[in-house]
């Protein structure tokens, strides 16, 4: 009796956070993958998977923050490239020590994010438009900075970021730390409460006298920093910063958030869900490659499986909001 009661309590809590259905989708996908491909549950594949999910997952943290406030951020893919290229340029061309270069890259991300945040919060332009513009500006700035060419070959210290401790990629450890910190902020700070509240009912929050603009500015800065962090991780993984890096990644980050149960209208969702969403996205691509599905069909397969995952998710929507 006791156990069923607890189980019900667990299910109830999971349901309120909307992670129940992402969880089932993820488990189903993993089970199916393991059945259809003998290579899926091998150490080498899991090792690669964890490294592959890291970058999308880190972009998705920032994206989740923005979506929770009822906004959208289309810039992460471009800011990934910009942050990555800025770090690469600072280390490789200016010759700064690696930690300073990394801070510089993160700062550029924060700056671009702040521009997004100011235009959304103060000038009141819809975030879709502002970040669409930043998507273009960020990519352009990256091309100008790199002159359209990759920056290659970093000092050894950079590749440590993309190395492995046993079978565990350092990248996923970084992601884990980011997720824990970001979730703590969401769950246990006033700022976190405000983020949810703004997504729930912005007008009400304004009337209560909370500085909504400052919260919005924060989420966009945070998203910019996450994107730049993704860019630095990409630098380490490729041992180079390519100006084309991260094209279309914003869509993966948005998909990860939404598949993870974050409501598109804001106010509902959690980072646990987002991480599961990012895993679903990555496992999909991985599985199709393991099976050797031809490129043309991969697009169709990916779209179909996403719809199936979204259908299973939509069954949970009525419990929320």
């Amino acid at each position: 009796m006791e156990t069923t009661g607890r189980f019900k309590l667990f299910i109830g809590a999971a349901n309120r956070n909307r992670i129940l259905f992402p969880f089932f989708s993820l488990i189903t996908l993993i089970v199916v993958s393991a059945i259809v491909s003998p290579y899926f549950l091998t150490v080498i594949n899991i090792k690669h998977l964890l490294a592959q999910v890291a970058i999308v997952a880190v972009l998705a943290v920032g994206e989740t923050y923005v979506i929770l406030t009822g906004g959208i951020d289309l810039a992460p893919g471009s800011l990934l490239a910009l942050g990555g290229a800025a770090t690469a340029a600072l280390i490789k061309w200016v010759g700064l020590p690696i930690p300073i270069g990394i801070l510089g890259g993160l700062f550029i991300g924060a700056l671009a994010g702040a521009a997004n945040g100011l235009l959304v919060a103060r000038v009141r332009i819809p975030s879709f438009i502002v970040t669409l513009a930043m998507l273009a500006i960020g990519r352009g700035a990256t091309l100008v900075l790199t002159n359209g060419r990759p920056i290659t070959g970093f000092p050894h210290g950079v590749s440590v970021i993309a190395s492995y401790i046993g079978p565990i990629p350092v990248l996923i450890i970084i992601v884990f730390v980011v997720y824990v910190l970001a979730q703590l902020v969401l769950s246990y700070t006033k700022l976190g409460r405000y983020i949810y509240a703004i997504g729930g009912n912005e007008q009400a929050v304004r009337i209560v006298g909370i500085n909504v603009n400052r919260v919005k500015l924060f989420v966009f800065i945070f998203s910019g920093v996450c994107a730049a962090l993704g860019g630095i991780m990409m630098d380490a993984r490729l041992d180079s910063a390519t100006p084309t890096a991260g094209q279309g990644y914003e869509l993966d980050a948005i998909a990860a958030s939404v598949l993870g149960g974050v409501s598109f209208t804001g106010g509902v969702g959690s980072l646990t869900g987002t991480f599961m969403g990012a895993l679903i996205m990555t496992i999909l691509g991985n599985l199709l490659n393991l099976l050797g599905v031809a490129a043309f069909y991969q697009y169709i397969a990916k779209g179909m499986i996403l719809i199936i995952a979204a259908i299973s998710l939509s069954r949970g929507v009525r419990y929320a909001k």
Partner: peptide
């Protein structure tokens, strides 16, 4: 043994090859 697209992209090339190496 594998004939896949990597979208003319370096990061995708890395990912696709990782997946192939798992097999």
């Amino acid at each position: 043994i594998a004939d896949q697209t990597a979208q003319f992209d370096r990061a995708t090339g890395l990912k696709v090859m990782e997946d192939i190496l798992a097999t």
